[in-house]
Structure formats: C-alpha cells, structure tokens
Design a protein around this nucleic acid. Structure first.
Lengths: 316, 316
DNA sequence: CTGAAAGCGCTAACAA
DNA sequence: TTGTTAGCGCTTTCAG
C-alpha cells in the first residue's frame, strides 16, 4: 500500500498538504486539493490507522468486558452498546473474561496501551482497588452501582427490583420461595438477592437456593431438585427466563400446575418467557448498555439508574 | 505514561535492550534483563500498541461484519468467533452494517487501514466484485459458500438442509406448506429456500410466503395471517425458532392443534424451541463462527462445510 | 551481548 | 496558502 509520501510526490505537493486534504483542513487551494484527491483516488489510498492513532493518541475504539459471550443478560448489554456505537462512529471490541481476574486486568491494560479509548465493564471479578488505577489512562464505566467517583455507572437498582418481587410474592401468600442463581456467592447480584430475600422472608433455607443455573437444562434440573423436596417451595424466582423456562418444563412434566401449585418468576424478558407465558422482570439491559456507551464517549462519571419493569404474564 | 526511552534511561541501557526484554529475545544478559524488568514493573510500563502495530504491520484484531446485532443467527456466529478468539489471543471487533452497502465497504477498508488483520463476513449486501479487491489487504472469510478462490468459506449447505426439511414434510403427507423469511428477496438463503421448495412442492403460492419475520411477535402475526387463509397451510417452516414460537402461540390461541392440525418447524435450536417442544434444524452456527475464525488467522481460503442437524421434537 | 541509528506512516508547529 | 521538519513510541538492522 502506498503511503502519504508517495501520494505527496505523485501529486507534486508536500506531505503536509496531503495530510490537510485528508483531514479536511481549510487553507488548501481548490487546485491542490483536487490534484491530491485525484491521486488518492487513483491509488486507492487509505491512511494507516496505527500511524494516525499513534500521533493522535486516540483510537475511537471502546472495549466491553463481558464474562461470558453467550449469556442472555450480557448479550443484551452488548447489543445496547453496539446500537449506540453505530450512531457515533465508534468501533467496539468484545473482551470475554470468563471471570478470570488476570484476563480482566489484561483488558484494562488496553487503556494504557492506547488500544482503547474507554472500557465498559458489564461484570467484574477484580475488586475496585485493582480497577481504579486504570481510570488514569481512560474512562471506565460499569454496569453496576458503585460510589467510587472515578467510575461512571449505568446500572439498575437490583436490590429494589428483587425486593419488589419478593414482596409481591409475599402478598400473594407465598412463604416458601426458592431462588436460583448463576455463579458463586461473590456475585454482587446474588448478594443483593439474598439481602432482599432476608428482608422479606427471613433466612433463606439452603435447600431452596440452587447455583450454577444458566440455561433451560439447568433450570429443568433445578426444578427437579426443588420439587422433589419433602417440603416444596410454592414459588421460585429464577435468575433468567431460560432457567425459569426449564423449571416450568419440569413442573409441566410432573403435572404440577403453574401458577396454582407453583409460581415462577423469570428475568430479562426473553423469548422463551413470552412463549411459555412466564412473568418476568425486565431490567432493560439494552438501555443499560446504550447509556454506558454514552457515558464512556463523553468521559462522564455520572451514576445513571435505569428503571426496571415487572412483566405480568401467567406464571404467578 | 512513560515510554521506552525513559525506561531505557532509568535502567541505564539502550532502547534496543528494553525492546529485547519486552519481546523476550535471547542474547540479553540476565543482569540487564532483570534491571530493565525492575524499572518496567516499578513504572508500571506498557508498550504503546499503536506504535507496535505500526512497525509490526499487524494488530491481532479481526473484525466480524454482522447485519444486525440482535438476531439469533448472527449472534450465534459471533459467539463462535468469540469462543475461538479467546484461545488464540486475538481481539474481535464487531461491525454492524444494517445491510448498508457503504458501511460494509467502510469496514472492509479497515483491512487497508491496517486496523484489522482479517474480516469475517456473516452476511453481506455488496456483491463479490466489490468485495474481492479487499482481499489484497488481508484475508476475508465468509459464512456463506462462494467459489471465488480469494474467499475462505465456513458455511452450511442451506439448500440441502431446506430440501431435506421439505422432503420430510412431503413424506409426512403435507402438500400445502408455508414459509416465513426475514429480509427481501435479495437474501441468498431466501433464494435457496425457494429453490428447495420448488423442487419439492413446485411453485410457492405468494400467500404462503410471509416476509420480515424476526421475533416472536412477527411469528404471531405471520401465524395469524396464514391461519386465516381460506385454504390453510398444514405445515409452516419458519426462518427461526422465535418466529416458529410466535406461530405456535397463535395456533394455540386459536385452538389449532400442533402437530395434528398444523406442523411447525423452526431453525437454530433456540431456547424457546425447547420450551415449546418445537422441531428445529440446527445449523450449528456457533461452529460456523469458530471455523471462520480458524480460517482467518491461518490465512486459509478453504471451503469448509459445517453439517446441520435436524432436531425432532413434537411440533411435526 | 549491546547500542546507535534508521525508519514505520502520519500530524502539527513553525517558518516562509 | 504551502513546505520543512521534528517528533509520536517502537523494532530491527548493523556495527562493535
């Protein structure tokens, strides 16, 4: 590929002039401008982005840290930032961590490298103390609330959402309610779920708490486990609609009527939920992603709460 | 951020030596190596990637062109390439086109720019003549078959898959079968669907062909439309499980029994399909994505066919 | 084994 | 309005 020197030579001007027409500077005579443009066209020339980035010290690329790249929740946030990125002419690069701390830090280092102009964290495994230092090199926003002033947040009030669901269940007369969750106790949202549970029903019996639920199949097994209990739960709050769907399927197979014998509540308003008529709480994660993107490119550290909404269908 | 010069100065060596320890060259005395490493650590230094890329002429970043960033099929391919990228220490950047030709070309130009080491096209709107020239600047692989030798392909034999489904339907005694599709006639997969249809059932009556179906809701409307026909179809082959799910829901609401009164077949083996017991053909798009990634980074122009599989559940 | 120096391709003072 | 030139931060000959 030709470079700016050759173009300059061919057009009979200096590289500075070529650079000027490339960047639409004024103070270039129409005559030279068109001469340069002509050479650019005929040589099918495009400036080398690494060189431009090197000198400009920005890349117009932002990264999004995602633990798993096939999880309904993270996918929604990804879609949100992708949606927003198109409008603003930014590129987004996906950074999957599988909750590996070192990998997560490696990605954060891309801010130092000047590969990325900013990073959005949808979920983290490092603690804030390890993350904060990177804010010196570029904006980082998180899809979870934190009061660290260096971090912008586009988040949902999960505690409030969980609390509302549990209260609702209580009002409906449920006292023995089970929950499912994804990864271990270290997860912030699990912590919040438990707090909300406690404040509504008191201590959560361990047998009513199933971990490692991600897909329909996991939900099916969770249902099996829960509904085989001597003292069955009368309601289950699943950590996603797919899991909720699996639970529903198991109940169905056992001839357990939903919602009469078992109430089920899902999350994130996924297709399987509409298919099965599952009630759900939609945390509007797409909006969370869109908002996170706006914060990043405007280098804002605001704390923005995205409202959730409960979707009433027939499983509760 | 410090640069290589400062590190060299502080460590009392030349930049060349610093570069050598950075890149794990041999022929650096253990003494100098550790001196340099110490300074690197204490300064928390990271090389500037733009500068490295500029001189190395590679970025270890590959792009994936995707028309829509919330479509089950494209999402699966994206997940496939993401899966593969983690192992190989590459970054992937998502390039959403909304089938805008100019945008697509802009992305391809990122190969010329040296922003991307390669590009994977999951679906294109430009014709091959416009795309081929870019293969001069880096590998481009497509998730669709083409015999252009410049293009690597990781694809599924859609025609064969459609044909098998239609034949199966025919054997089951169906003669009036409808189909749904996404975007306009220009889509290659629509074309192949029609060919397969023709070779099985002959001309497809226009009233049995519904366009612009993407989600559950679209499917519901399609079902409504199709099942209101004076002469109803006895089977519907949907372009995705979500659409199939919508059709199922409508049939259910009308008390039309599946599969007795209406057979439904979906595609891509999505959660809603397992929830509703919908038969589906799984094109294994995740594998398509993984394979595409391998082709790209190995700069191969092979044509690799990924097998599909029909999943029998209870809707047919 | 180590360092000096020549770039990679581009932008932006600065001077003209 | 234009050209000269000094870098941006790094890698890699080429000598020693």
């Amino acid at each position: 590929m030709a470079n700016i020197n050759e173009i300059a030579k061919m057009a009979g001007v200096s590289v500075a002039t070529v650079s000027r027409v490339l960047n639409n500077h004024k103070y270039v005579s129409e005559e030279k401008r068109s001469a340069v443009q002509k050479v650019i066209d005929q040589m099918d020339y495009t400036p080398n982005k690494s060189a431009v980035d090197l000198i400009r010290r920005e890349t117009r690329m932002i990264g999004i840290i995602i633990p798993y790249n096939n999880n309904q929740a993270f996918d929604q946030m990804l879609h949100g930032v992708l949606n927003a990125s198109i409008e603003r002419d930014y590129s987004v690069i996906v950074l999957p961590t599988k909750y590996n701390k070192a990998k997560e830090l490696t990605y954060l280092a891309m801010l130092k490298n000047k590969v990325l102009d900013g990073i959005i964290i949808t979920s983290r495994s490092n603690d804030w103390e390890s993350i904060i230092p990177y804010t010196n090199y570029g904006p980082v926003v998180c899809c979870e609330y934190t009061d660290h002033p260096e971090i912008g947040c586009s988040y949902i009030d999960r505690y409030a959402s969980y609390l509302e669901v549990f209260q609702y269940l209580k009002v409906k007369g449920h006292t023995r309610v089970a929950i499912t969750r994804g990864r271990g106790m270290e997860s912030i949202s699990t912590r919040q779920t438990l707090d909300a549970y406690n404040n509504t029903f008191g201590e959560l019996p361990t047998e009513l708490h199933i971990s490692d639920c991600y897909c329909v199949e996991d939900g099916y097994h969770a249902g099996q486990q829960l509904l085989s209990l001597a003292s069955r739960p009368t309601a289950i709050y699943a950590n996603g609609d797919e899991v909720a769907g699996g639970i529903y399927l198991y109940a169905q197979s056992m001839n357990i009527k939903v919602p009469q014998d078992l109430a089920i509540m899902g999350q994130e308003n996924q297709p399987i939920g509409v298919g099965l008529g599952l009630s759900s709480v939609d945390h509007q994660l797409i909006k969370v992603g869109e908002q996170a993107f706006e914060l990043i490119i405007n280098k804002l550290q605001h704390k923005i709460e995205i409202p959730y909404r409960i979707i009433h269908r027939s499983s509760i």
